[in-house]
Lab assay of single mutants.
Amino acid sequence: TEYKLVVVGAGGVGKSALTIQLIQNHFVDEYDPTIEDSYRKQVVIDGETCLLDILDTAGQEEYSAMRDQYMRTGEGFLCVFAINNTKSFEDIHQYREQIKRVKDSDDVPMVLVGNKCDLAARTVESRQAQDLARSYGIPYIETSAKTRQGVEDAFYTLVREIRQH
């Protein structure tokens, strides 16, 4: 089974770092803004072998026109913010609204991801993020692309959301 996953969120929150940590098991430290990259990885989730087709997208506003296209083809979405960047957390709402509009559905598989949880300088409390996820009816997972904490959990949870859909 193949799953088309799309990673969305503001610029600099760590979308590529999360994806590369999942696929290649290493942490990319330097920031190089993405336009669009796709990665494929075969994994076993709950005993089922599946192929993850992951689209890593641009957070930069100037590429926002490309969003409709990949939102149409994606089956599930990782909505990523950084726990030390309140603005990126506030941006999640717009991504969710755009996904709902493009998919013409209120019920699209999504996982809210709070990345950079290895950093002490948190400005978005776990509780705020949990409340937001609960209001959307989606899971919330904290990750660190640096330490790998929660990385597999985030992507695998999204696959489970798609399966249950």
Score class of each variant (00 low, 15 high):
91 D>L: 13
45 I>S: 11
82 A>Y: 01
16 S>V: 00
77 F>M: 03
31 Y>N: 13
15 K>T: 03
134 R>P: 10
70 Y>D: 14
30 E>L: 06
96 R>L: 10
50 C>N: 02
33 P>Y: 07
132 L>R: 10
2 E>M: 05
139 P>H: 10
162 I>P: 07
121 A>E: 14
85 N>H: 01
89 F>S: 05
68 D>G: 04
96 R>G: 03
87 K>N: 04
72 R>G: 06
143 T>Q: 05
163 R>Y: 13
138 I>W: 10
122 R>V: 12
27 F>H: 09
53 D>E: 09
35 I>W: 14
161 E>Y: 03
153 D>H: 08
30 E>P: 09
131 D>F: 00
84 N>C: 05
12 G>S: 14
119 L>E: 15
68 D>P: 03
60 Q>K: 15
15 K>C: 05
121 A>L: 06
75 E>S: 04
147 T>C: 14
136 Y>K: 13
12 G>F: 15
56 D>E: 03
67 R>G: 14
26 H>C: 10
59 G>Q: 07
123 T>E: 12
165 H>S: 09
156 Y>V: 13
73 T>I: 01
104 D>S: 08
91 D>W: 10
144 S>L: 14
109 P>K: 04
163 R>L: 13
147 T>H: 09
35 I>P: 02
12 G>I: 15
116 K>E: 15
155 F>R: 06
165 H>K: 09
149 Q>L: 12
27 F>G: 02
164 Q>S: 13
47 G>M: 01
104 D>I: 02
59 G>C: 13
14 G>A: 00
15 K>A: 02
17 A>W: 01
160 R>Y: 12
96 R>E: 01
137 G>P: 07
24 Q>D: 05
162 I>N: 05
14 G>F: 00
158 L>A: 06
23 I>V: 06
72 R>V: 05
35 I>V: 10
18 L>H: 05
11 G>D: 14
132 L>P: 12
17 A>I: 11
36 E>D: 15
120 A>W: 11
4 K>D: 01
104 D>N: 05
88 S>L: 04
156 Y>S: 12
98 Q>R: 05
99 I>H: 02
103 K>Q: 08
110 M>S: 03
23 I>E: 06
91 D>F: 05
45 I>Q: 01
53 D>M: 05
128 Q>D: 12
64 S>C: 11
101 R>A: 04
92 I>G: 08
31 Y>A: 04
70 Y>F: 13
96 R>N: 00
3 Y>G: 04
24 Q>L: 01
96 R>A: 07
150 G>C: 03
71 M>E: 12
52 L>P: 09
135 S>D: 12
146 K>M: 14
141 I>A: 08
48 E>A: 02
67 R>F: 14
60 Q>W: 15
